[in-house]
Design a protein around this nucleic acid. Structure first.
Length: 180
DNA sequence: CCCTGATTCGC
DNA sequence: GCGAATCAGG
C-alpha cells in the first residue's frame, strides 16, 4: 500500500501550527508529519507567517553547554531501562503507534544511507540512538533499532514515521458549520 | 559532526 | 505554493 504523498492539507497544517508553536524543531515536525523534509516544514512555516519563534527552545533540541560523553551514555541506559516499552512523547498531538511490531519494519526510507537494522542491546544503546524495540523485552534477544535517532525524538526517521502516524483522516463532513 | 532556522529560486 | 539547495549560524 503506497499512500500518496500527502500535501499540506488543513489537517497537516493544523498539526504543523501546533507542533511549531509547541517549540518543536522543523526536523522533528517533519518526522512526525512524515512525507516532508524539514525544509518543507520551514518553507511552509514561513509561508504561513509563523516564522520567528520567541522560544529558541534548546530543550527539545540540543543540550546547550553540556558535556556529553559518559553522562549521556548513562542517561540513555537509564532512559531505556525506564521505558523498555515504547513511550509516546508528550508533544505528540496525534496518536502514538497503536502497537509496536515485534519485528523489524519493512524497508524504511533512509536518505542518509543508514542501516535499517543496526540492532543493539541496551548496553550499546547511546543517546541519539533509535530506541525502537525489536522483539520481546523479556527475551535475551531483545534489541533496539539503534539507528541514529532524530534529536529530541526516541526514534530514527524511519521509525518515527511508523510511530507517529497521523490519525485517520476525518472523512466526516465537518463543513456543516463553515463551508467557506 | 551534529544540529538550527532563513532565504533563494526553479519548478 | 512548494521545497531542495543553499546560506549563516550554534
Amino acid at each position: 500500500m503506497v499512500e500518496a504523498v500527502p500535501s499540506w492539507t488543513d489537517d497537516r497544517v493544523e498539526s504543523l501550527r501546533r507542533l511549531w508553536e509547541e517549540g518543536l524543531s522543523a526536523s522533528q515536525i517533519a518526522a512526525q508529519l512524515g512525507g516532508v523534509t524539514r525544509n518543507a516544514v520551514i518553507g511552509k512555516v514561513h509561508r504561513l507567517g509563523l516564522a520567528g519563534r520567541v522560544k529558541p527552545n534548546g530543550a527539545a533540541g540540543q543540550v546547550t553547554g553540556r558535556k556529553k560523553s559518559e553522562q549521556e551514555d548513562e542517561a540513555a541506559i537509564a532512559l531505556a531501562e525506564e521505558q523498555t516499552l515504547p513511550e509516546p512523547p508528550a508533544v505528540i498531538s496525534h496518536r502514538p503507534a497503536p502497537n509496536f511490531p515485534l519485528v523489524p519494519p519493512p524497508a524504511a526510507p533512509e536518505p542518509n544511507g543508514l542501516a535499517v537494522s543496526q540492532r543493539v542491546t541496551i548496553m550499546d544503546l547511546r543517546e541519539s540512538m533509535c530506541r525502537w524495540p525489536l522483539g520481546d523485552p523479556t527475551s535475551p534477544d531483545f534489541r533496539f533499532c539503534g539507528g541514529r535517532a532524530i534529536t529530541g525524538l526516541p526514534y530514527c526517521t524511519a521509525h518515527a514515521q511508523i510511530a507517529y502516524q497521523p490519525a485517520a483522516e476525518r472523512k466526516r463532513d465537518r463543513r456543516v458549520a463553515g463551508v467557506r
